[in-house]
Design a protein around this nucleic acid. Sequence first.
DNA 1: ACGACTCGGTGACCGGAATCACCGGATTCC
DNA 2: GGAATCCGGTGATTCCGGTCACCGAGTCGT
Lengths: 218, 218
Amino acid sequence: MPRVFDTSALVTFVTCKQTSRVYPPGSVLFSEGDMPKGLHILDSGRVKLFGSTSRGKTFITKIASAGEMLGLNAVILGRPYLLSAEAMEPSRVSHVVRGDFLEFLRKSPEASRHVIEQLSVNYYDSQREIRTLNLSSSMREKFARLIVSWVEDSDGGSDDAIWINLDLTHEQIGQMLGASRETISRVIAALSRMGVIKVQGHVLEIPSVVKLRELAKL
Amino acid sequence: MPRVFDTSALVTFVTCKQTSRVYPPGSVLFSEGDMPKGLHILDSGRVKLFGSTSRGKTFITKIASAGEMLGLNAVILGRPYLLSAEAMEPSRVSHVVRGDFLEFLRKSPEASRHVIEQLSVNYYDSQREIRTLNLSSSMREKFARLIVSWVEDSDGGSDDAIWINLDLTHEQIGQMLGASRETISRVIAALSRMGVIKVQGHVLEIPSVVKLRELAKL
DNA sequence: ACGACTCGGTGACCGGAATCACCGGATTCC
DNA sequence: GGAATCCGGTGATTCCGGTCACCGAGTCGT
């Protein structure tokens, strides 16, 4: 799932006033509804971006990895965050005060380029997510699509077997797809029985990406 | 639903080489999967943005109105469109060849500002959509949220009755929410019975926005 | 080594929405 | 003035997935 991002965002903004600190796992960088005080740039580690209802239901929209700017659009627009951010591993995060950031953005065409690019990618991903959520009839299909999207990030192109390190719990996968833990469990069981995937501990083997892609109806 | 956008995008790009034409209702500007040849700017009219599966199922992500740049992120990234665009009314659309656009974008800070802003807004909306899709348990809730989002665009703030001109068919609403026509029909009937909305032809009356917002659980 | 906890697997049950089928009203088009 | 369409309302049936409930395996802390 590492939506790769060239780390030069760090370089771009390095000339800019900024502070940096390490967040331990489980600590939150910001919460849904907060007004953005400044831009967070993830130097290393992984951060979970998620939203939740008043009734405790949670959904994860993405797992951000090194190089990403978090809550970028909220910072730019000066509107409240729609998502909360929580470190999954010890994560080093740089922080630029909003005013400084906007200032810098105005002056530096290079920074503009970066921001435009990241916003475009974010939006693009987000459109794909909506597509997946909306067009899949069954959970099977959604799950297959999720896996396919993971594979695409690390794939050569051939139809050889692929292994994925699955370090998410069923619960978390459920939160990404809008399903319950039990359903994920059952879907995985079903796909295993069909021979589309094989599970050994935290490793997911996909014997044939083609078969998976069929299931995803892509 | 008019996600308002200041029309100055037109002005910004007016110095730029561009062609302009009017699309009759039902004609497509571009289709899902196409490689973007250039940027479309909607001068007037309304354009439906939607995606579909091979099996004919369709979902509408938004209705674009005057001032919006269509498929902006795909154009910037040079990746295939994820959505198709189809005129709903006679619509005047300006077109800037991709190379010219990127060139212009590089040179003009003003244009960059515009692009950043629109991308941010698009992404923001899109996050809200994901939120709605993922966190609503029932169709009732999704529907209520849709209406609320419409109302917010045209609302003063008080809790007076509000009228909305509903010029979408049940089918189209269904495609926005990922529901079938019948379900929308039933949901509307249910809400009418509850007195939360009243329907007279193509006009939707909302006696109390507060009650609606309760249903939306926002 | 023992509970306490988290994670995952499975069965039973139930509800909401898709689907199928049919009907009536409004438009449009010869 | 029919015939063909499109739109919307409603019933009957089916099925997917949420929820509840319980159980086993692994891990951690003291």
